[in-house]
């Protein structure tokens, strides 16, 4: 099987996010650290597990992003991916998932991938659109929120389970090639070993400037970014830890929640 895994670089979850002065995108502060979108580590791991079970499988990783996002491809190679492709986008503003998906589809089309894997969403933008849109561009089926997959013996189909509300799972037989967006918990993503990281450093990464793809209308425009308002009139406890503990106790006692 030939598998393409889509990986995105995102800011680490606990890095502070600040809106750029233009109000049109974010401004990573100097201390910000970047990582592979945690949701995508499950996609890389799943591809590697398929390779362990299906002899002759090749795992390719692709990312769309600026120069610095190449680190995420190194991470994927360090985990064990065979090859990596960087679709280089030098733009700094908001890029709608439609464009990302169109470029990945334009790259992947005609290359014989049996399976394209993505995370369920990107931790920063939370769109959940890129995978389903890649499938639509390539006119192949897509199943989202997948928690189990097993390619059929003749490699024409893959059996999958997708998660629905409340945690139940719908089972489907999906025709290959297809796109799957993977839900967290499907596996336990591995950490790259030192030897793999060293090997990954020497690997050639294919770079494709995004400009080579047909110019497309992005469709969406980001009007502005801002910090959301509180929905409940919550109180922020102030003072030392001792004072906060006492205040909380008083509030809970008052509400007859703890006596």
């Amino acid at each position: 099987m030939k598998i393409l895994v889509c990986v995105k670089q995102v800011m680490e979850g606990e890095s502070p996010v600040r809106v750029h002065d233009s109000g049109k995108w974010i401004n990573p502060c100097a201390s910000a650290r970047f990582e592979m979108n945690p949701f995508d580590t499950y996609a890389v791991e799943e591809a590697l597990q398929i390779r362990e079970n299906v002899p002759g499988t090749l795992v390719h990783a692709v990312t769309v992003g600026p120069e610095s996002s190449r680190d995420t491809l190194r991470r994927a190679l360090g985990m064990g991916a065979d090859e990596a492709v960087h679709i280089l986008d030098t733009g700094t503003g908001y890029r709608p998932p439609f464009l990302t998906a169109s470029w990945i589809a334009a790259y992947a089309g005609g290359k014989g991938y049996d399976l394209i894997l993505t995370g369920i969403m990107s931790a920063d933008e939370m769109n959940g659109q890129t995978g389903p849109m890649i499938a639509q561009s390539l006119s192949i089926p897509c199943a989202s929120a997948v928690l189990y997959e097993k390619p059929g013996p003749d490699r024409t189909h893959i059996s999958i389970e997708r998660e629905i509300e409340g945690g139940a799972r719908d089972m489907f037989e999906v025709k290959l090639p297809c796109v799957l967006t993977l839900q967290t918990g499907i596996n336990a993503p591995r950490y790259p070993s030192l030897s793999m990281v060293l090997r990954a450093r020497k690997k050639e990464i294919t770079v494709i400037p995004a400009g080579v793809f047909v110019d497309q209308e992005p469709g969406l425009r980001l009007h502005s970014l801002y910090s959301p308002q509180k929905q409940r009139k919550g109180i922020l406890l102030k003072g030392t830890m001792e004072e906060k503990a006492k205040q909380l106790m008083d509030i809970l006692a008052q509400k007859a929640l703890l006596t």
């Binding site: 998932p97 849109m133 199943a143 989202s144 929120a145 998660e163």
Partner: peptide, 29 residues
């Protein structure tokens, strides 16, 4: 929902339109 998330992005593309997921509100600005 698990289904809306599944079909909406592809539908927008099939219709040559745009897609916004996880909307919380609509405002005129």
């Amino acid at each position: 929902s698990s289904s809306g998330m599944d079909y909406a992005p592809a539908l927008s593309m099939a219709l040559g339109g745009s897609c916004i997921t996880g909307v919380k509100d609509v405002v005129r600005t």
